[in-house]
């Protein structure tokens, strides 16, 4: 039930009905591509050719999903997306964990162990949030080459960590700034040092902002295409790059159902994360100071 007193004249009601109709149409427009993708991925190829983009499948089949997962051709190899999906996982998990942890440490140092130049440091870090990916491609490729990490999973993890730290630091700094300094002072007097205070006092109350950072980083890194296509080797390409190859592989007939299934597979993790943890994301973004 909504909680607003509004005018009840016929004109006002008409206006509301119109408003709802408009909202519904807009929602439909937004959802339609997803619906088409889902329907197409569940149809056999003949049925798609027969037309009827929006018609429900006559014969429901998961063959396209299985093929996209296990045997579709991405370029010269025909092993489906599964391997690349795993590549993505092995990039995303360490990259998210490391960038979140480093963001937390940065935010902690910037707010609770204020050193000369801390503000400048933070301002420079913030620049990182505004640098477009394309700008760093060349220097990054060179750096990875020097480090001997070119075309490797670790190289990609490093790139994503470096790029993500700007954001995670921003999140954690803004969260920790609202935590009273006296709490840290009390811990110092109790005899705890820099890391002890971090592990024992601060991290246990950082749940909301860790959630935000993890969701944000997960989505960013999982959906990344540019770094993946630029820096990954054959064995370390993420699922987004593989999806591109799958769709662009030009041998034989165009299998729309497999393409759609592949796209859904690639998008599923971020969808799941948002559905499962979305409300914590919003809650974490608005979380104020932790009351003692």
């Amino acid at each position: 039930m909504d909680n607003v007193i509004r005018r009840r004249t016929p004109g006002a009601r008409m206006l509301r009905a119109g408003l709802y109709a408009l909202l519904m149409v807009m929602a439909l427009v937004y959802l339609l591509p997803l619906v088409v993708m889902l329907l197409t991925s569940l149809k056999p190829l003949e049925e798609i050719r027969a037309g009827g983009l929006l018609s429900l499948p006559d014969s429901l089949t998961f063959a396209a999903w299985l093929k996209a997962w296990g045997s579709a051709c991405t370029g010269t190899r025909c092993e489906g997306l599964s391997g690349y999906f795993m590549n993505s996982v092995s990039i995303v998990v360490p990259a998210v964990a490391i960038s979140t942890l480093m963001g937390a440490l940065n935010g902690y140092a910037l707010t609770k162990w204020r050193f000369r130049g801390a503000n400048l440091c933070f301002a420079l870090l913030l620049f990182g949030c505004f640098i477009p990916f394309q700008v760093v491609l060349m220097p990054m490729a060179q750096t990875l080459g020097w480090l001997g990490l070119a075309s490797s999973t670790s190289g990609l993890v490093l790139v994503h960590v470096v790029y993500g730290i700007a954001f995670t630091t921003l999140f954690f700094r803004n969260y920790y700034v609202s935590i009273p300094d006296e709490m840290i002072a009390a811990a110092k007097l109790d005899g705890a040092g820099f890391f002890r205070i971090f592990w024992r006092i601060l991290l246990p109350i950082s749940g909301p902002i860790i959630t935000v950072s993890v969701i944000w980083q997960f989505t960013q890194i999982w959906n990344d295409f540019l770094f993946g296509v630029a820096f990954a080797g054959f064995g370390s390409q993420p699922v987004t790059v593989a999806l591109n190859n799958l769709v662009n592989t030009s041998t034989g007939v165009k299998e729309y159902n497999v393409d759609m299934a592949g796209a859904l597979i690639a998008a599923l993790p971020t969808l799941v994360v948002y559905v499962v943890a979305g409300k914590y994301f919003v809650r974490g973004l608005t979380a104020g100071s932790v009351k003692g």
């Binding site: 009273p180 006296e182 709490m183 002072a185 009390a186 007097l189 246990p204 109350i205 009351k291 003692g292």
Partner: peptide, 13 residues
């Protein structure tokens, strides 16, 4: 030294 603060500064967790 031990200190008692105005805000108490207890560890919430």
């Amino acid at each position: 030294i031990a200190m008692v603060f105005q805000s108490y500064a207890l560890y919430p967790s």
